[in-house]
């Protein structure tokens, strides 16, 4: 089996998720080559052929150009599997490549055995086993699902590539969501509010528990999107990544994008009315209860200590 791994690069640096692609190929026992739009000043530690397009010409975000560069490499390498991260770069580019190849795309793969790919369904409540019906297959890998057994090492054999494709999209630069305010990455105790708090007013009981414990409050994305909490409180892939001593998740279902931001916490307590909520997968303790009752009861007991 031959795979092509599509590495990622942003703002002058190679992204670490690239090594998860290598781990995936390793798990399959497959041969691999790598594709990167990047720079030879930030090469991956990788033993194999690296098809490298210069980011100064191809741009960091330029799907039409990246697609053409990839198709050229695929035509040459003839891989059976083309592997992306299930990231903002990967889920944007992968379908473009899959359609051009007339290939199946299997998204957000969490496990693989032979030609069967495992993916989550229904907000991670269920799983599906999928098989491709086409000769070539495009896959995107869920972040964190595959890990290298050892530190990455090696030196790639670089082959420079380029294309003269025009793009219908114009990249106007990056913008950072404003930072400032509280820095949750430094907090040792975080109590987080999810959509399960039901309404803005209930954030108060979450922040009171946080205060009683001597920590900060955080939030899941819907709570921030609804403007019940500031963006700097958001935990997850598109917010902060935290690893406090104690993380208390209140009314949070445990979507992969939230888990990615907090699963390294030392001790995790989840409060949820749903015993089967995926947050249970990472929680040391799952308290099956209505947070509107349990959170004030807990706060009261802690305040009395």
């Amino acid at each position: 089996m031959k795979t092509l791994l599509v590495a990622e690069y942003r703002e002058g640096a190679l992204l670490n998720a690239t090594y998860e692609l290598v781990a995936f190929a390793e798990k399959l026992g497959a041969e691999s080559a790598m594709f990167l739009v990047g720079s030879d000043t930030a090469l991956p530690k990788y033993d194999g052929t690296l098809y490298l397009a210069d980011v100064a010409q191809a741009g960091e975000f330029n799907p039409a150009v990246h697609k053409q560069l990839l198709l050229d490499v695929i035509a040459k390498e003839q891989p059976e599997l083309i592997v992306f991260s299930h990231s903002s770069y990967g889920w944007d580019l992968a379908p473009r490549v899959a359609l051009a190849l007339n290939a199946a795309q299997i998204s957000e793969v969490v496990d693989v055995a032979g030609n069967t790919f495992v993916v989550p369904a229904c907000n991670a409540k269920l799983r599906r086993d999928l098989q491709s019906k086409t000769a070539q297959t495009v896959v995107t890998l869920q972040g964190g699902a595959f890990g290298l057994s050892a530190e990455p090492s090696g030196t790639p054999k670089v082959e420079k590539i380029e294309t003269a494709t025009a793009s219908p999209l114009e990249f106007g630069g990056y913008e950072a969501v404003e930072k400032g305010g509280v820095d949750l990455t430094k907090a040792e105790i975080i109590v987080s509010a999810g959509r399960g708090i039901g309404k803005a007013e209930n954030l108060e009981m979450i922040s009171q528990l946080a205060e009683a414990l001597g920590g900060e409050y955080g939030a899941s994305r819907p709570v921030v999107d609804a403007e019940w909490a500031e963006h700097n409180r958001q935990i997850g892939t598109t917010g902060q990544t935290v690893s406090p001593k104690l993380y208390v998740a209140c009314g949070i279902s445990g979507a992969i994008q939230h888990l990615a931001g907090m699963k390294k916490s030392e001790f995790i307590i989840a409060i949820n009315t749903d015993k089967d909520a995926p947050i249970g997968e990472v929680a040391d303790v799952l308290a099956v209860a209505d947070l509107k009752e349990l959170v004030p009861a807990l706060t009261e007991r802690i305040q009395k200590l």
Partner: peptide, 30 residues
């Protein structure tokens, strides 16, 4: 282009402690 072989409920690997029942008792345990 692809087919579903099967759909299923994922195995629980959590192994964490589950507290259920009276809210006051859960709070004490916590």
């Amino acid at each position: 282009r692809q087919e579903t072989v099967k759909m299923y409920v994922p195995e629980k690997k959590g192994g964490g402690l589950v507290l259920e029942g009276d809210v006051g008792a859960i709070a004490d345990q916590l």
